[in-house]
Amino acid sequence: MNAKHALDDAQRRALLAHPAGWIAAGFGSGLAPFAQGTAGSLAALLPWWFLLRELPWPIYLGVLVLTFALGVWACGIAGARLGVDDHRALVWDEFVGQWLALIAAPAGVAWMLAGFALFRLFDVWKPWPIRGFDRRVKGGLGVMLDDLLAGAAAALVLQLVARFV
């Protein structure tokens, strides 16, 4: 199986032997046997629902900046340990992108699920300019940047839908 898709036992041990690996793997959500990005995005909904959604804007933005920087560091180390820059098991980018997608989501589970679906759409589809950044920027920053852009696109569409519904 392609190294980008499956972790063998040695890779799993290398990834989880360092705290950065636990963070980059979304505290284990990236170890799902399939659809790791979706698993990471779903896992990100829990801290968003219980911790982030009620935060004041300045604090929420601060959390996004700090968790993005943490992700650049963690995904850079984890990718180096795995020998694959953007391995599917590295899902911290899904956490931060999902949180950005939901930054101004209206209250309610339906809006959270809409934000989840929009983020997954933009993350998988990678329309311009997201695809360009995904191809050109490598390392921890590259892992994080395309999902941040997908989260921003999802947030914009979610706000447009909310405005006109």
Rank of each mutant, 00 (worst) to 15 (best):
G140H: 01
W125Y: 14
F34V: 08
F122C: 09
A78C: 09
A104F: 14
G115S: 12
V63I: 15
A74L: 01
G37H: 06
R12D: 07
G26V: 00
R53Q: 15
G108R: 12
P19V: 09
R13K: 15
W22N: 04
L61C: 14
A153H: 02
A10Y: 12
D147Y: 05
F68R: 00
G115K: 08
G83N: 06
A69H: 01
I103F: 15
L70M: 13
F27W: 11
P47M: 12
G21F: 03
M112S: 12
R135V: 00
L46D: 09
V65D: 04
F133E: 01
D8E: 09
R53W: 10
I59R: 12
K138L: 04
A162M: 04
L100F: 10
F119W: 13
L46P: 07
R81D: 04
L64C: 07
L61M: 13
S41K: 06
P56C: 11
G30E: 00
P129E: 04
D8I: 08
M144Q: 06
T38I: 11
D146A: 03
G62N: 11
L149M: 13
G79N: 02
A69T: 08
L55N: 06
L121D: 11
R135C: 00
L70A: 13
M144V: 03
V65Y: 05
L46K: 08
G26K: 00
A35Y: 06
L141A: 08
Q11E: 13
F50G: 14
F122R: 11
M112V: 15
I103A: 15
D85T: 05
P127M: 04
F133A: 06
W73A: 01
D85M: 04
V143P: 01
L46E: 07
L90N: 01
V143S: 01
P127N: 05
E94G: 09
K126Q: 05
G71M: 03
I77C: 03
A14E: 05
V65R: 03
D134N: 07
S41Y: 06
A24D: 01
V143T: 02
A32L: 04
L100N: 06
G142E: 04
L51S: 08
F95E: 07
R13H: 12
H5W: 15
F116P: 07
P47C: 13
P19R: 09
P106R: 07
V72G: 00
S29P: 09
A24C: 05
L156K: 03
G79I: 03
M1S: 14
L66T: 01
T67H: 12
F122A: 07
W49M: 11
G139A: 05
A107Y: 12
R136F: 02
A25Q: 03
F116M: 14
N2G: 12
L156I: 10
W73N: 01
A44L: 09
G142T: 02
G62H: 12
V161Y: 13
A152V: 10
A110R: 15
W48D: 05
K138V: 03
G21I: 04
R53F: 02
G21E: 05
A35K: 07
L45C: 11
A25E: 01
H87K: 10
V143F: 00
W22K: 07
H87F: 06
A44V: 09
L141P: 00
V65F: 09
A69Q: 04
W111Y: 09
R12S: 11
A155L: 13
R88G: 15
A117G: 11
A44S: 10
R135P: 00
L145S: 00
A80C: 05
P127T: 01
G151F: 08
L55P: 06
R12F: 08
R12V: 08
